[in-house]
């Protein structure tokens, strides 16, 4: 289940305002690589609205949940549009915390970043895919990922909100988009892997941007559950800060 949330988060989390994507100046700056990669994964300071569909296959059965996501900077609000019984449920990322809001429920439920959610899934899986903020990056090499030349980065957690101690991260030299990630435990075991595709196009502040269209997460442990996250219909939209407050979300 953590997969679902991780993938969802990848879509929902917006990066802190990255610097203008200028030309890479040699030697390559690892931190700016991560910031650019975060942006291509949907971390837009300007605001975005799109649909996100998460399909998880686990134990031989597949479930799909569709969301309408509005995001801006660090904040995001995702509202379930399907299936019908879950319609109206919301997930609000605000100020580094995740809230689950359900119609009829007396109060929203806070999912703090360091708490276990269920089984092995930590809430941090959800809130800390903003790598530029949570990790210190170091360029450690170059690899070929599916025919594309990529920088290999080692990300080490810098703060308590980081989900993993280490991430192995491959960012394409051309386009500076994340191609692949491996999430590692303290001992260096791979917990899960993710691959990314970028077929969405959006013009942001007059500039064209290739945006993430699909993220595939595979559980490296256990029985190999897979989650596929599809991103669609991106629209640049400047959202007022007020929609990301709890008061407004529970209404």
């Amino acid at each position: 289940m953590s997969l679902l949330l991780t993938s969802l988060t990848a879509a929902l989390c917006a990066a802190a305002a990255p610097p203008a994507p200028g030309l890479p100046s040699p030697p390559v700056d690892a931190a700016s690589l991560v910031r650019d990669a975060d942006r291509a994964r949907g971390g837009l300071a300007e605001g975005i609205t799109w649909t996100v569909e998460v399909t998880s296959t686990e134990d031989g059965s597949a479930t799909t949940t569709a969301y309408l996501v509005r995001a801006r900077g660090d904040d995001a609000l995702a509202e379930v549009t399907a299936p019908a019984h879950a319609k109206g449920e919301k997930l609000l990322f605000s100020g580094g915390a995740l809230w689950f809001i359900k119609p009829g429920l007396k109060k929203p439920v806070a999912v703090s970043t360091r708490q276990k959610l269920a089984g092995p899934a930590a809430a941090g899986d959800v809130a800390s895919t903003n790598y530029a903020r949570d990790y210190a990056a170091e360029l450690v090499g170059e690899d070929d990922v599916g025919g594309a030349a990529a920088w290999r980065l080692e990300l080490k957690a810098t703060g308590p909100s980081a989900t993993y101690d280490r991430i192995r991260y491959w960012v394409a030299k051309s386009g500076r988009q994340a191609l692949k990630a491996e999430f590692l435990t303290v001992g260096g075991d791979v917990v899960k892997t993710a691959t990314f595709e970028y077929d969405n196009k959006l013009t942001v502040a007059g500039k064209p941007l290739e945006l993430i269209s699909r993220m595939t997460i595979t559980d490296a442990m256990g029985e190999g559950a897979v989650s596929v996250v599809r991103f669609g219909a991106p629209k640049a939209e400047a959202h007022p800060a007020s929609i990301f407050t709890l008061e407004s979300a529970v209404r």
Partner: peptide
């Protein structure tokens, strides 16, 4: 997770 509207 058990919540009280603030913490869980």
């Amino acid at each position: 997770l058990a919540g009280n509207g603030c913490t869980t």
